Lab assay of single mutants.
Amino acid sequence: YKELDVHLRRMESGFGFRILGGDEPGQPILIGAVIAMGSADRDGRLHPGDELVYVDGIPVAGKTHRYVIDLMHHAARNGQVNLTVRRK
């Protein structure tokens, strides 16, 4: 696995990616679609299928989808987010 730290600034449309997973206990949280011309797309480092490991330094492995969405909403209010993702 390769770990990447990604800092994104929120645009009008948000951070520019969707979150998948976390529906079953222990299921990984994954990056879903990366939205064209969004913040994540312009940054270029997030890829669909990347596993989300940390959101603003908070571990999200094994957490629920709702928990991660709530963290992302909090980050959106701050206008930026630091993510750590893991890729095979």
Rank of each mutant, 00 (worst) to 15 (best):
Y1N: 06
Y1F: 13
Y1D: 06
Y1G: 05
Y1Q: 03
Y1I: 08
K2E: 06
K2W: 09
K2F: 12
E3M: 11
E3Q: 08
E3F: 15
E3Y: 15
L4M: 12
L4T: 05
L4Y: 12
L4N: 04
L4P: 00
L4W: 07
L4D: 03
D5P: 05
D5C: 11
D5K: 13
D5N: 15
D5Q: 12
V6N: 03
V6L: 07
V6S: 00
V6A: 03
V6R: 00
V6Y: 01
H7Q: 13
H7M: 13
H7L: 09
H7Y: 14
L8C: 05
R9P: 10
R9A: 10
R9F: 10
R9L: 11
R9S: 12
R10P: 13
R10V: 10
R10T: 15
R10K: 14
E12L: 04
E12Y: 06
E12A: 12
S13N: 15
S13V: 03
S13R: 10
S13K: 14
S13A: 11
G14C: 03
G14T: 04
G14W: 01
G14I: 03
G14F: 02
G14Q: 03
G14L: 01
G14N: 05
F15R: 02
F15P: 01
F15D: 01
F15K: 03
F15E: 03
F15T: 00
F15H: 00
G16H: 01
G16Q: 02
G16P: 04
G16D: 02
G16Y: 02
F17S: 01
F17N: 01
F17K: 00
F17D: 01
F17M: 07
F17L: 14
F17T: 00
R18K: 14
R18E: 15
R18Q: 14
R18N: 15
I19R: 00
I19T: 07
I19F: 06
I19S: 01
L20Q: 15
L20S: 15
L20K: 15
L20M: 13
G21R: 06
G21Q: 09
G21A: 09
G22T: 09
G22V: 07
G22Y: 05
G22N: 09
G22H: 06
G22A: 08
D23N: 13
D23Y: 10
D23I: 10
D23H: 12
D23K: 12
D23W: 11
E24I: 12
P25M: 08
P25A: 10
P25T: 09
G26N: 11
G26H: 08
G26P: 04
G26R: 06
G26F: 05
Q27I: 09
Q27R: 10
Q27A: 13
Q27K: 11
P28C: 04
P28L: 04
P28A: 08
P28W: 01
I29Q: 04
I29S: 03
L30I: 14
L30V: 14
L30E: 10
L30D: 00
L30N: 08
I31N: 00
I31T: 00
I31A: 00
I31W: 02
I31Q: 01
G32S: 13
G32A: 11
G32T: 10
G32F: 01
A33L: 04
A33V: 06
A33K: 15
A33F: 04
A33W: 04
A33M: 06
A33N: 14
A33H: 13
V34R: 03
V34A: 03
V34H: 04
V34C: 07
V34Q: 04
I35H: 14
I35Y: 13
I35Q: 14
I35V: 13
I35K: 13
I35W: 07
I35M: 12
I35R: 13
A36H: 12
A36L: 06
A36E: 13
A36P: 15
A36N: 11
M37Q: 14
M37W: 08
M37K: 15
M37N: 15
M37V: 05
G38K: 04
G38Q: 06
G38C: 03
G38W: 01
G38A: 04
S39T: 06
S39A: 15
S39V: 06
S39I: 04
S39Q: 06
A40V: 04
A40L: 03
A40M: 04
A40H: 04
A40R: 03
A40Q: 05
D41M: 06
D41F: 09
D41S: 09
D41A: 13
D41I: 04
D41C: 08
D41Q: 11
R42T: 08
R42L: 14
R42K: 13
D43L: 03
G44S: 06
G44K: 07
G44T: 05
G44H: 05
G44C: 04
G44Y: 04
R45L: 05
R45E: 06
R45G: 08
L46G: 00
L46C: 02
L46N: 02
L46T: 00
H47D: 06
H47E: 11
H47W: 10
H47V: 13
H47R: 14
P48Y: 08
P48H: 07
P48C: 10
P48Q: 13
P48L: 09
P48F: 06
P48V: 14
G49F: 06
G49L: 05
G49A: 04
G49K: 05
G49I: 01
G49W: 04
G49H: 05
D50G: 02
D50R: 01
D50M: 04
D50V: 00
E51Q: 10
E51A: 05
E51M: 07
E51K: 04
E51S: 03
L52G: 02
L52T: 00
L52D: 01
V53I: 14
V53S: 07
V53Y: 07
V53M: 13
V53A: 08
V53E: 06
V53G: 02
V53R: 14
Y54L: 13
Y54V: 14
Y54N: 14
Y54K: 15
Y54M: 13
Y54Q: 14
Y54E: 13
V55I: 14
V55A: 01
D56V: 00
D56Q: 05
D56Y: 03
D56T: 01
D56K: 01
G57C: 06
G57T: 07
G57P: 00
G57S: 10
G57Y: 06
I58P: 00
I58Q: 13
I58L: 12
I58V: 13
I58D: 07
I58G: 02
I58K: 14
P59H: 14
P59R: 14
P59Q: 13
P59Y: 15
P59W: 09
P59V: 09
P59S: 14
V60N: 00
V60E: 02
V60Y: 00
V60C: 11
V60S: 00
A61N: 09
A61W: 11
G62S: 06
G62Y: 06
G62M: 07
G62P: 01
K63Q: 11
T64G: 13
T64Y: 05
T64D: 10
T64C: 10
T64Q: 09
T64E: 09
H65R: 15
H65F: 12
R66V: 08
Y67H: 11
Y67T: 10
Y67C: 10
Y67P: 01
Y67W: 09
Y67V: 10
I69W: 09
I69Y: 09
I69A: 14
I69G: 10
I69H: 12
I69K: 15
I69M: 15
D70N: 13
D70P: 06
D70Q: 11
D70L: 07
D70G: 12
D70S: 12
D70H: 10
D70V: 06
D70A: 11
L71R: 08
L71N: 03
L71M: 10
L71T: 04
M72D: 02
M72R: 00
M72G: 00
M72Y: 03
M72N: 02
M72H: 01
H73A: 14
H73T: 11
H73M: 10
H73Y: 09
H73N: 13
H73C: 10
H74G: 12
H74E: 15
H74W: 09
H74C: 14
H74P: 00
H74F: 11
H74T: 15
H74Q: 15
H74K: 15
A75E: 04
A75P: 04
A75D: 03
A75W: 04
A75G: 05
A75Y: 03
A75N: 02
A75R: 05
A76W: 12
A76R: 11
A76C: 09
A76S: 11
A76Y: 14
R77W: 08
R77I: 13
R77H: 14
N78H: 11
N78W: 06
N78E: 12
N78R: 14
N78Y: 08
N78G: 08
N78L: 11
G79C: 06
G79Q: 08
G79V: 02
G79A: 07
G79T: 04
Q80P: 03
Q80C: 13
Q80G: 09
Q80L: 08
Q80I: 09
V81L: 08
V81C: 05
V81E: 03
V81K: 02
V81W: 01
V81H: 00
V81Q: 00
N82K: 12
N82I: 08
N82Y: 09
L83I: 13
L83G: 01
T84L: 07
T84H: 10
T84K: 15
T84D: 03
V85L: 08
V85F: 02
V85N: 02
R87P: 03
R87L: 04
R87T: 05
R87S: 11
K88D: 14
K88S: 10
K88R: 09
K88P: 15
